[in-house]
């Protein structure tokens, strides 16, 4: 039987054109919400970064092979973030602790180190041992919230202690912002990366815009 496809195969270029990020429609509102001055705030979506979900039990041979590949020990505690060595498969990526045997390998903001490549190599490293590596890049998007008032905004809906003495730069926690499950990563003294799942991005984006509103008058 002859092979017929109803839909023409999508080229890589066409795929890039078609691609829509979960909060793309909010970009203009995000930009307009910027606040300068003593209560500065800036919110943007940084879409399409690579995220690979990794399940492996630390201390096992499989974990050791994965660590070798990533060029870093896996983070060992809640909040922990490890940085992959420059010559590793995920050079410059970070490994975020999600649970005792669950991690997220995240490419640097704005970059994509080929997810397929990284995932395949991790799968290979796991071999036949228990564990998994799955490309989850489409699962979550990234919001970057920066500014002097960023913590005030987040404190409106996050029950974690966000004070620097409890939430250090370079740590990341799985928690909730408002009613939305997120990964919250403090990447600088006034900069936070927030990972909502794609389907929550619209809601969380609007939630953040609303939470930022009070600071507009204070600019």
């Amino acid at each position: 039987m002859a092979e017929h496809t109803l839909i023409a195969p999508i080229t890589e270029q066409r795929a890039t054109e078609l691609r829509r990020s979960p909060a793309e429609h909010l970009a203009a509102q995000f930009a307009a919400a910027e606040v300068t001055g003593p209560h500065s705030l800036a919110l943007r979506e940084v879409p399409f970064r690579t995220m690979v979900g990794l399940r492996v039990v630390p201390g096992t041979d499989a974990a050791r092979r994965v660590e070798e590949l990533l060029g870093t020990p896996l983070p060992g505690r809640c909040g922990g973030v490890a940085i992959c060595l420059g010559n590793s498969v995920a050079a410059g990526s970070s490994v975020l602790w999600l649970g005792p045997d669950e991690f997220l390998v995240v490419s640097p903001l704005g970059s994509t180190v080929g997810p397929a490549e990284a995932t395949a190599r991790l799968v290979e490293a796991l071999g036949t041992d228990p564990g998994s590596a799955v490309d989850l890049s489409a699962n979550r998007t990234t919001f970057e919230l920066a500014g002097k008032a960023a913590r005030d905004v987040l404190e409106k809906g996050c029950a974690l202690d966000l004070h620097p003495r409890a939430f250090a730069v370079g740590s990341a926690y799985v928690t909730q912002l408002g009613p939305v499950p997120v990964l919250l990563w403090k990447t600088g003294s006034e900069t936070w990366e927030i990972f909502p799942r794609a389907s929550f991005a619209d809601y969380l984006g609007r939630w953040l815009l609303d939470a930022m509103r009070e600071f507009h008058g204070a600019r």
């Binding site: 649970g99 669950e102 926690y173 799985v174 909730q176």
Partner: peptide, 14 residues
């Protein structure tokens, strides 16, 4: 006193 199970759904999922 009651021994019960919880799951940390929006955290470590354990």
């Amino acid at each position: 006193l009651f021994a019960e199970r919880w799951v940390h759904s929006s955290g470590c999922r354990k």
